[in-house]
Nucleic acid binder design. Sequence first.
RNA 1: GGAGGGGUGGCAGAGUGGUCGAAUGCGGCGGUCUUGAAAACCGCUAGGGGGCAACUCCUCAUGGGUUCGAAUCCCAUCCCCUCCGCCA
Length: 427
Amino acid sequence: MLDRQFIRQNPDAVRAGAARKGVKAPVDEFLQTDAAWRTATHEWETVQAQANTVNKSIGALMGQGKKDEAEAAKREAAELKSKVGDLEGAAKELEAKLREIELLFPNLPHDSVPDGTTPDENVVIREWGEKPTFAEAPKKHFDIALEHGLIDFDRATKVSGSGFAVYTGMGAKLHRALIQFMLDFQTRENGYDEVYPPALVLSSSLVGTGNLPKFEEDLYSTKDDLYLIPTAEVPVTNLYRDEILDATDLPLKVGAFTPCFRREAGAAGRDTRGILRTHQFEKIELVKYVLPEESYNELELLVTDAEDILQALGLHYRVVLLCAGDMGEKGCKCYDLEVYAPGEDRYLEVSSCTNFEAYQARRANIRMRRGPGEKPEFVHILNGSGLAVPRLLVALIETYRLSDSGDIVIPEPLKPYMGVDVLKNPD
RNA sequence: GGAGGGGUGGCAGAGUGGUCGAAUGCGGCGGUCUUGAAAACCGCUAGGGGGCAACUCCUCAUGGGUUCGAAUCCCAUCCCCUCCGCCA
């Protein structure tokens, strides 16, 4: 959601910003409805004010024992009442319509975001490490997973259909070790408060983050008006919905591990082998509530917080600044972290770090107050994965499988969690 | 699932159908006093919308209803608490 005042005063800037994302913002519809709403509201309030005055006078007249005058006032009030009802109905209807339109506006890209419509136009900001080299062509993760018995794809399909994985044995343990390591790291080293939120949420929470009403087809829903979360961003961001935070408590940093559920409706047939794209996956999510003037600085810090994991694991990756057309509707500025997977010979997105500015805060009504007597202001909200588990696991086993023996070397930080240094090739 | 109780401002806690957006206390802020602090005393202290402004409207869980008028009465929904049952 954008600031109403801003849209009124800068309709062209809103149109232009949305256009950079390849989205048409309903600016004209907004302006028209907004004007009608304000007119209707004014009319309603004027008559309501009259009615209030008359109603109050009735009480006073009764108190003074002026019965006749009170009766006359009652008749007048009754007339005003029906007028008020009509006007109120009209105003409320327009307000609801305005809100509906408002929720359809995309967020506007920041000035520092490059133009572009496809991933080809994203900009690589920096790379870390080097592409690992192998004596033989490195294996793909699903072959390694089968070789080591880390994942049972067939039984996953039997149990849940396509797009799921059953991690088995050391695969399950590695999966768990990554989660444990990342959460421990972000809470110990980077100052995030750990939270374990529900994986089922009300639709109102999804409106708050911007997933509804526009992107319902991406979500799994239940018969109970609850949705499965597509990311921990949803429950965590909504933690402070309708609250006014104390500015001195900012930045508020929350880290959460959850499963994530996505229908991947638009991605059927893409990345079908292995665990590159599944309907359920696990990740650690980092969410920050910050002062508006700090949010772009906080975005850079968020990116490095997520990078810390990849560096600790010694995995080659790059940081990509997404162009306006590729970053989705909700963000102002977004960096992707892409880890290199040797078997795939490509970079896999394991994190998207986004500054939403006040877009989500406005939808979810999350504000802060700078001091006593100050007006509440919307906070800026940022989030990023830190990181997504399956793709990280892919990069890990593809990077650390030794060509000659087929053994998988466990990187240093994971050893305490794994209890072993190497996954021996069973053959 | 059954029975009962309850949702009021940052918190606690009053509230008779008619100057109640709401007593009082605590907390917070400002002031007097003090070398400074404490204490005491005085004042201020909910959120949102519209309007340049004066001002005005809405909000006492939410949505309906009764009434000229609802925090107050009625109905529905949601949430919380207690007891019983069930359960990891």
